[in-house]
């Protein structure tokens, strides 16, 4: 029973991180109809940048958040303006954008390998080993902080998407891609902005990830898959849907440890993906991901 509670708590804490990384992917997919495979590279790269800032300049990972957000926002905008913009969209163009962004991911991976070698890295701060007690179980403090940051980010995102004009436009397009042109919005700027926001969310996810787990240049692949699972589960409509999707995935993974050998838990997210696609192609919550 204690084990169940402990796993439950860790699942909830993990879900925060999952929501952040999934929202970045979902936002770009919703608006541009492009699956940003480079998302995996962004998560990985952000982890390394955070590590660099910490180990070389002594900047605390949590204080590095604004830096990461800005850097990866700019990276996203440049990526959009530099290459993605030139690709055809929609059904026929899907293949091309998929392959191109995949290529960018590979280059990023190789770059990280050359710069940092293939060894695992981890960020150790003086509070890394601190833990706090929730409902009688001891939880790593960093996980709680990550959760709080994730929730704050999602809340801010929710306000942005529901209160601001640009945010509303993003949501409208994500929910109904058929609406086509966005009245009164400079479409190209709008797309670049969306790509930037999505990428900076990926960057934030990478930073948060780096404070909890070890990482190497191949990191991000599993996170990409998990993000996609969350998007499929939660739909593209709302922050709440994504959060619910993340919870489902996190719980499934956490409790899988009770019944599966540990090396198989990595397959849980994938099995969940297939099961959900077959049973509820529209996602568990909210509207369909794809027409």
């Amino acid at each position: 029973m204690e084990e169940v509670v402990r796993l439950g708590i860790s699942a909830v804490l993990l879900a925060g991180l999952y929501s952040v990384m999934a929202y970045g992917l979902g936002l770009i997919y919703g608006v541009l109809r492009i699956v940003n495979l480079a998302h995996a590279g962004v998560i990985m790269a952000a982890a390394y940048v955070t590590w660099l800032l910490h180990s070389r300049l002594g900047i605390d990972p949590y204080l590095a958040i604004p830096v990461i957000l800005v850097v990866f926002f700019i990276f996203g905008v440049l990526l959009y303006k530099g290459v993605v913009r030139f690709l055809p969209r929609g059904a026929a163009g899907g293949v091309q954008s998929l392959l191109l962004l995949f290529g960018i991911w590979l280059v990023m991976r190789n770059g990280a390998y050359l710069l940092f070698s293939g060894n695992d890295r981890a960020i150790r701060t003086e509070y890394s080993t601190h833990s706090i007690s929730i409902f009688g179980t001891s939880v790593a403090q960093s996980r709680v902080v990550v959760f709080v940051i994730a929730v704050l980010t999602l809340a801010a995102l929710h306000l942005f998407l529901t209160r601001t004009y640009t945010g509303k436009a993003i949501r409208a397009v994500a929910q109904n891609p058929d609406s086509g042109t966005i009245v009164g919005v400079n479409v190209e700027r709008f797309y670049a902005l969306t790509f930037g926001i999505g990428t900076s969310l990926g960057g934030l996810a990478g930073l948060l990830l780096a404070t909890i787990f070890a990482f190497n240049p191949t990191s991000g692949a599993v996170e990409l898959l998990k993000s996609f699972v969350v998007v499929v589960l939660g739909g593209l409509g709302s922050v709440v849907g994504i959060a619910l999707g993340a919870l489902v995935l996190a719980f499934a993974e956490s409790y899988a440890i009770l019944i599966l050998p540990s090396y198989l838990t990595a397959a849980v997210s994938f099995v969940l993906l297939v099961v959900v696609l077959v049973l509820r192609p529209g996602g568990l919550f909210g509207q369909r991901v794809l027409a």
Partner: peptide, 28 residues
């Protein structure tokens, strides 16, 4: 079979998961 029925990039993403899961299982 289940993933091909859906349109869009589902299949492509699923293949990343399949190959990763298969590799893990094979290694162990």
């Amino acid at each position: 079979h289940p993933t091909l029925r859906l349109r869009g990039p589902y299949f492509a993403i699923a293949t990343i998961g399949v190959s990763e899961a298969t590799r893990l299982i094979a290694t162990y």
